[in-house]
Design a protein around this nucleic acid. Structure first.
Length: 568
RNA sequence: CGGGGCGUAGCGCAGCCCGGUAGCGCGCCUGCUUUGGGAGCAGGAAGUCGCCGGUUCGAAUCCGGCCGCCCCGACCA
């Protein structure tokens, strides 16, 4: 491709509203353009990268037996009513009516459609197992798009679905995807950490997320220094510290003016935050008040709390509701409370003589003991693992890191097949629900993560596997020296004819512009042909990622690039 | 949805406080010169100042409403 003909432009300065390095570079280099909040166009360069990533994913999913197909983006709402998600999912699903007033939705994911196909097509155990997949647009009306391509509302996902006879089959399909994902991300140049994860709206029993470590990532990961433990903080286990045994002392009221935070309370009473109990108040969608009690040195984990409460989602409770339940925000505890579900962290239950709210302004109790002073509805782990906590596996130190989720794998089980009636007739003559798994990779997000991982202050430095072109050919001084143009045109022609993708900067621009753009665009190799390089014997080859330069004859260069193409 | 910020030419910005002919840099077009690190000179094109309404002789500027975008939080497969 000749740069003079490519539909693109580079920008000296990125649009002010973009902060994420990948978004700034992709816009500046002419790979993407933003149309609206969380809605992007892939320009020809960006589209080529997406296609390269897609091709790698396709190879790997085909290799584990996946059959590619294509499912629609617009679905009848009734299908989603059957699975229950029409009611369960909030406003992030776009709903509308067609001209006949039928309720429709935009696809956020495709479990329902796959399951609908299964109940239509699969009758016998002989038709299983199978893996189907597609690359398709999803629309999720995120409350807040952010980070360029990292969190968008419209995006293409590779989603595959495994359909098995039983859970042993699902285990195999899950493992196949786990290994395929590991290869895929390695091939596209992403270092990922698979972490155990919450199953969220997918339901099912087991899930992993493939995370790219990135300080701007939206997820918090809990990692063991010994490398034997990696989980999303949403579900990460916590080995609780032991508390020294003490006899329960009598409840004692204490004046604590102006101490609505644990920090100020502990400072006033001159005790550690680990001697306090913290109350946090949430409401679920049905309006039920949930009071969470954790030790003052820990934070509430809302995912664990929601799972413990059996709640679909949690929101901070309104002060009026807390007061109506007999508690005082800032000085709250379940002592004397009513009309609330009380969920207590197991560490609180094991810690004697804590300071807790007295449900009166400026007043706390000392020596609160569970269950002597209030009766929990449930005692379980509802706190976040912290930096430096003890690994539940090996006793090593845990560290926290931010990550971006580029892929996920879920064991769905039979939730969808049972709800929609996707069953097969087994060898035993009985009907059984198909056992399903669901596996996603976000294309655009992966693309952005590659840029996050492969760039410098000059621009992008694509890994060869996903670069839109294998090389960027720059001709310098062609206007004065016809031999430069001849050599560059000749090399471009022969490489192109040989099937090597070359981006050829044939524009009438100054050397500075051409070099700067080449570095910004980020092809793995920059080939410079100029009077100087010709005098030195051919073309100058610069490895974009390392800056390493060397001179090759045109023939060597051709042979090398063609050989590399064949190798891939 | 709560908090904060921003909308003026393709991009980056000034002008707004204190109302009076819409500006700067880059980019773009034409010509000449230049050609190994974002060239020089000359000429030129391009803006409903986000939208609607109000105040005023007069609004980019003041007032009200709305819309859009970004950041933090909430939320999130």
């Amino acid at each position: 491709m000749r740069l003079s003909e490519l539909f693109f432009t580079t920008l000296r300065e990125a649009p002010a509203e973009l902060e994420m390095p990948s978004a700034r570079l992709l816009v500046r280099a002419g790979y993407i353009r933003q149309l609206g909040s969380g809605i992007f166009t892939l320009l020809p360069l960006g589209f080529r990268v997406a296609q390269k990533i897609e091709a790698i994913i396709r190879e790997e999913i085909d290799a584990i037996g996946g059959q590619e197909m294509s499912m629609p983006v617009v679905h009848p709402a009734d299908l989603w009513r059957e699975s229950g998600r029409y009611q369960k999912i909030g406003p992030e699903m776009v709903r509308f009516k067609d001209r006949a007033s039928r309720d429709m939705v935009l696809a956020m994911t495709h479990e329902e459609v796959v399951t609908d196909l299964l109940r239509d097509i699969v009758q016998s155990y002989r038709q299983l197992p199978l893996i189907v997949y597609h690359f398709q647009t999803k629309f999720r009306d995120e409350p807040r798009a952010r980070g360029g391509l990292i969190r968008v509302r419209e995006f293409v996902m590779k989603d595959s679905y495994s359909c098995d006879l039983d859970s042993a089959g699902l285990d195999r399909s899950y493992r196949l995807h786990y290994d395929a994902y590991t290869r895929i991300f390695e091939r596209i140049g992403l270092e990922t950490v698979p972490v155990g994860a919450d199953v969220g709206m997918m339901g099912g029993s087991l899930a992993h997320e493939f995370m790219v470590l990135n300080p701007l990532g939206e997820d918090t990961l809990v990692l063991c220094e010994n490398g034997d433990y990696a989980e999303n903080q949403q579900i990460a286990g916590v080995r609780k510290p032991d508390s020294a045994p003490e006899d329960a002392l009598p409840l004692e009221e204490v004046d604590t003016p102006g101490t609505t935070t644990i920090a100020s309370l502990a400072a006033l009473l001159e005790v550690g935050t680990d001697r306090t109990a913290k109350a946090a108040f949430f409401a679920d969608r049905s309006g039920r008040l949930i009071t969470a009690i954790v030790r003052g040195d820990f934070d509430v984990n809302e995912t664990k709390l929601a799972n413990a409460a059996g709640a679909l989602d949690l929101r901070p409770a309104q002060a009026e509701q807390i007061v109506a339940a007999g508690m005082v925000p800032g000085y709250g505890s379940p002592i004397g409370a009513h009309d609330t579900l009380v969920i207590v962290d197991d560490l609180v239950a094991a810690s004697p003589n804590l300071v807790a709210g007295a449900n009166r302004d400026n007043t706390h109790y000392r020596n609160v003991n569970v269950p002597r002073d209030f009766a929990p509805d449930l005692v379980t782990d509802i706190v976040n693992a912290r930096e430096g906590d003890t690994c539940p596996h090996c006793g090593g130190r845990l560290r926290l890191a931010n990550g971006i989720e580029v892929g996920n794998i879920f064991k769905l089980g039979t939730d969808f097949s049972a709800a929609l009636g996707a069953t097969y007739l087994g060898e035993d003559g009985e009907r059984h629900p198909v056992v399903m798994g669901s596996y996603g990779i976000g294309l655009g997000r992966s693309l952005a993560c590659v840029v996050e991982a492969h760039h410098d202050d000059k621009g992008i430095a694509w890994p060869a596997s996903v670069a839109p072109y294998a090389a960027h050919l720059v001709a310098i001084g062609g206007a004065r020296d016809a031999s430069v143009t001849d050599a560059a045109e000749g090399l471009y022609q022969r490489l192109t004819d040989a099937g090597v993708d070359v981006l050829y900067d044939d524009r009438d621009e100054s050397p500075g512009v051409k070099f700067t753009d080449a570095e910004l665009l980020g092809m793995p190799l920059i080939l410079t042909i100029s009077p100087r390089s010709l005098a030195a014997g051919g073309a100058e080859v610069t490895v974009r990622a390392t800056g390493e330069r060397s001179i090759r004859t045109i023939e060597e260069l051709e042979a090398e690039l063609v050989a590399e193409l064949v190798a891939r």
